[in-house]
């Protein structure tokens, strides 16, 4: 490896030495920055506080408002036992043998209830691979009956009932309004996703209404949670309806180019519009038979 590098630097080649030297400088600089950057980023995300020994606080999900519909999941002693087994295999290494959590690794799951468990498992966010990474949507690691088992087991430690949302009872205009007000700042206005400080706010193209309700009440990762006074059940239903609508928005203007605005528009202007015109110019701009 070292020999190759030295040869590359000293060998006579058609690349001028100046160029090779500057290439080496660039690579070195990029490597240095690459090494330095994540470190400073880590500091930023923790606000400069020493990392480690704090137990991530468990989020207590907001209960559904009084009289609001809830989602019930199957429950039976056999299911709880299956859930116990799955939990010990897949989750206890981080969340602790008896759901108490692990300092500096994962929050306690006591009293989170069914909603967060359903959300994290049905979106494939849990089990995490690395405790420090952002949980991202993934292929679920468990099938539905296994998820139900884990829900039955974990919610046997108590916690609020799981919220739910029914888009068919929602109002599209209200949903658009409420989404603009509460969610677009992170998820983009047509729910195409975006970024927040050191986290991604995912697009909502695969989310189910059930997951939307759970996410809104619980606030996964850096997302805030909303209680029933901030977003009541009707608004929640409406938001769910709006989110379903964003998958096929009314692109009256033609091809929607993903509905995120100017970045793809600029690309179309340059690489389709102007490119086509330059091609025309090239074709008609001069007599082809002329010697050049």
């Amino acid at each position: 490896m070292k020999r190759v590098f030295v040869r590359w630097l000293t060998h006579r080649s058609r690349i001028p030495p100046v160029l090779r030297l500057s290439l080496a400088v660039v690579l070195a600089a990029l490597a240095a920055v690459g090494l330095a950057a994540p470190a400073s980023q880590g500091q930023q995300s923790l606000g400069g506080a020493p990392s480690g020994e704090v137990n991530p606080p468990s989020k207590s999900p907001e209960p559904p408002g009084p009289g609001d519909p809830t989602k019930t999941f199957p429950d039976s002693p056999a299911l709880r036992i299956e859930g116990y087994n799955l939990y010990q295999q897949g989750c206890s290494s981080c969340h602790g043998i008896s759901l108490e959590g692990t300092a500096g690794v994962a929050p306690s799951l006591r009293g989170v209830g069914a909603g967060p468990v359903d959300f994290y498992l049905s979106t494939g966010r849990m089990p995490l691979e690395q405790p420090r990474e952002e949980p991202l949507r993934n292929e679920p690691a468990y099938d539905r009956s296994q998820i139900d088992a884990l829900i039955a087991f974990i919610s046997s430690y108590g916690g609020p009932a799981a919220p739910t949302a029914d888009p068919s009872r929602g109002d599209l205009a209200l949903g658009f309004h409420a989404f603009t007000l509460n969610c677009a700042g992170c998820h983009q206005i047509v729910a195409r996703g975006g970024i927040t400080v050191n986290a991604q706010a995912p697009d909502l193209e695969e989310t189910t209404p059930q997951q939307i309700a759970e996410a809104v009440r619980m606030g996964p990762y850096l997302m805030p949670h909303f209680d029933a006074t901030a977003i009541d059940q009707h608004t929640l239903d409406s938001i769910a309806r709006y989110v379903l609508w964003t998958r096929h928005p009314d692109d009256a203007g033609g091809w929607g180019i993903y509905n995120i605005g100017p970045i793809p528009e600029g690309m179309v202007a340059w690489f389709i519009g102007l490119a086509a015109l330059v091609l025309v110019a090239r074709l008609i701009g001069e007599r082809m038979d002329e010697p050049v």
């Binding site: 658009f176 206005i189 928005p249 692109d251 203007g253 091809w255 929607g256 605005g261 179309v268």
Partner: peptide, 14 residues
């Protein structure tokens, strides 16, 4: 372009 590809759909931005 104007007829086929959507640009700045302000009804979606609000």
């Amino acid at each position: 372009l104007g007829g086929l590809i959507q640009i700045n759909p302000i009804w979606q931005w609000g």
